[in-house]
Design a binder for these strands. Sequence first.
RNA 1: CGGGGUAUAGCGCAGUUUGGUAGCGCACUUGUCUGGGGGACAAGUGGUCGCAGGUUCAAAUCCUGCUACUCCGACCA
Length: 572
Amino acid sequence: MRASKFLIATLKETPSDAEVISHQLMLRAGMIRKSASGLYSWLPLGLKVVRKVEAIIRQEMDNAGAQEVLMPSVQPSELWQESGRWEEYGPELMRLSDRHGREFCLGPTHEEVITDIVKKELRSYKQLPVNFYQIQTKFRDEIRPRFGVMRSREFIMKDAYSFHISEESLKDTYQVMFDAYVNIFNRLGLDYRPVIADNGSIGGSGSHEFHVLASSGEDDIAFSSDSDYAANVESAEALAPSEPRGAATQTLNLVDTPDAKTIATLVEQFDIAIEKTIKTLIVQADEDCDSELIALIVRGDHELNEIKAEHCAGVKTPLTFASEEQLIKNIGASAGSIGPIDLKMPIIIDRSVAVMSDFGAGANIDDKHYFGINWDRDVATPEIADIRNVQAGDPSPCGKGLLSIKRGIEVGHIFQLGKKYSQAMNAMVLDSNGKSQHMHMGCYGIGVTRAVAASIEQNNDENGIIWPKSLAPFQIALVPLNYDKSEEVKITTDTLYNELLAAGIEVFLDDRKERPGVKFADMELMGMPHRLVISDRGIKAGTFEYKGRTDSEKQDISTEGTCEYLINKIND
RNA sequence: CGGGGUAUAGCGCAGUUUGGUAGCGCACUUGUCUGGGGGACAAGUGGUCGCAGGUUCAAAUCCUGCUACUCCGACCA
């Protein structure tokens, strides 16, 4: 490709609304431009990289026995009503009507469509298992798009859906997909980890996320120091403390605490250990519960895990905190003075709270706390559950080592969905006994455009992007100096260019009439992995100048056998 | 959804307090010089100052309403 026939849309200055490095560099290198909040256009350079990612995914999905399909991005509401998600999904689902008033949505995912297809096309267990995938534009009306294409509203996703007669078959394919994902992310050159995950709203059981490790990530990942264990903090189990509950040594003591509305001020004003305090969080109960509200209690220095809390019986999903009015009406005290003693509602305490003794909590009277509380003596031990987030330093749930926490960008997610959709939408085949059975399903996603951004997060320097070989839009840049003036430079460069093209190399020829510094800066910003400078000076000396993108020094190489030299470098 | 910020040339910004008819750097065009790390000089192009009202002799500037973008928060007991 010649620069004169290619849009080089590089920017010297960083647009002011770009926060993270990948967003800044994608704008500066001329890969993307914003069309509206969370909506991006891909310019030629950026699209080349997207296509590279897609090609790798296609190859590995095909190798893993999946079949490519393409489903519509606009989907009829009827299918979503059938699965129940038309009601469930919330405002992220972009809904629209056509000229006849029929309702549609922009597909945030395609379980409904594929399930509908499969249920109409497949009759027998003999046709199973099958795995269909597509690379499609998705739309999610994100509450807050940010970080460029990392969290945009419209994005490209590879999604796959497998169908099975049995759970064993599903587990087999799940493992095949897991392995395929490992291959894909290895080939993409990403530093990533498979991570045990929660299923989220999509439902089902058994799930891994693939996270690219980067400080700009939006998820917290817990790692064991002594094993391969890694889990999203959302789903990492907080083990029950091994030590038993301490004996009561203090008497129950009601104290005036007029200014202590938060744990932090309580700890400060009364000089008590934060581990000897508890937070009592009041949330809405669901319809099955006798009470209007439920109390969730975690230790003062811990955080509630909303997902774990939602799994507790009686807790309304999505988790909703009680309003101030509800607190006054049901408890007679407001937030900041609530605790377990004389609390007239179901209580669930975290495992770590269950072993506490001599602790402090709100008294359910405004501006008063109890200190020296002990379970059973002062108040019956409530139901115990794991409802907190793990913290760095916690023992790993795998039994080995301690947890540390790093940030991750979720670029892949695989689920064992089970029968959630096949039952809701009545997708059945005949089994070997001639009986109708709901199919087991799995689903497997990769954020294509997000993976591009994640790669840049991990591979950049002060001069710009550093593409791994597999993603580079071009393998090598030829940078002739005085291309427009020196016949010799032009002939030499064109010859080399044609040789490299003939060898199947993706070569970029910067034939612009620009000063050298401009060309060098642009080629580096755009992340060209290899660069060859062709100049009169070099030709006279019988050399070209070569520099790899990450090399600290440039080097002169002989003009003899340059093509082979470069091909070796590129394939290195 | 709550709170903050911003909106002036393609990009980055000043001008708004104190109203007087729009400017700087980069980019872009033309020319000359230069020619191995975003070069110099000269001459140019480009703006309904986010939108709609209002006040005023006069509004980028003051007032009202709206919109878009953006950051933080949505864990508080």
